[in-house]
Design a protein around this nucleic acid. Structure first.
Lengths: 149, 149
DNA sequence: CCTTGACTTGAACCGCGGTTCAAGTCGCAG
DNA sequence: CTGCGACTTGAACCGCGGTTCAAGTCAAGG
């Protein structure tokens, strides 16, 4: 009825996600089609924004389940707010670790030590990383195929 | 023969990794036991450092296979060096994305919008994140069980 | 010598995040 | 009305990163 609704194919194309992924996210409660045209799902254009958010958060280590919880957040849900704050903290630590790792990696790329891993500078940097990450937060992550089509 | 060698149990304990994980890493070529005492693997203490590195890098999105390649890096391996530099770049972008996501999350935690996801500030921040991540680098990641034992 | 107990092995299994497949259903063009 | 082609579904399958299990082997102690 609403001409501004997007066909699943279009959403897939514009979000660079496979239609199967869209259906998968729907099953997990991350997105909802606006309606159907015959069998075909149609989506409100806003879904693109949401998908961008999902893709981004996934790349940051949020699990799909976790996202499901966050995405239906309402201001009244204080537990969720605390969860978010906690996540922000975790992200912060993760950022620190990544930064140190990046620096170590940069150094390793130009370092002279025979087994690169044994470079003292590298080790020192890694030591910092490791010590900060001693208690591993529950931060998981996955990857993409991003090709065909 | 060398009294300073560590039993697998000790390595497991000190690295906070399950023995099964140690064997798994060995099979993947990430670590090598120094020898055996009967059937039992014994490790050079240095393995702890290496494990710290592994754990850290894993948490940063390196796959075990990838680590296998990096860990036997020799300075002469220019391809690997380039790979490392590339990885550093990717990490850098990832850091940027994580930072923006963290900030969005912090805001979301105190924001008033009814479905939190619809807060304009939040969206704006996410938009930034998303646009930067439009071409997702191959950065994957996994999580821990960290309990029994 | 025989038990005990912690390790050994390979193989099976698990959860996650999807993809792929077979079979079915629809809108639309001719 | 009849295809055609693109979607629909559920179920099977995949790779990753391990864990768990059954069965075997060893060192040490009684």
């Amino acid at each position: 009825m609403d001409a501004s609704l997007l066909d699943i194919a279009e959403v897939a194309q514009r979000s660079r996600l496979a239609p199967s992924a869209l259906r998968f996210y729907e099953k997990k409660g991350l997105i909802t089609p606006a309606g159907r045209n015959g069998l075909r799902r149609t989506y409100h254009p806003d879904v693109l924004e949401r998908l961008a958010l999902i893709t981004c958060a996934r790349s940051a280590g949020f699990s799909v389940a976790e996202l499901g919880r966050f995405l239906q957040a309402r201001p009244s849900d204080t537990a969720l707010r605390t969860g978010m704050t906690a996540k922000a903290e975790a992200l912060d630590e993760q950022i620190g670790r990544l930064t140190r790792l990046r620096d170590s990696l940069r150094h390793a790329a130009v370092c002279e030590h025979e087994p690169l891993v044994d470079c003292p500078d590298f080790k020192r940097a890694v030591g910092n990383v490791a010590s900060t990450s001693t208690a591993l937060p529950t931060v998981g992550q996955a990857q993409r195929a991003g090709s065909s089509r």
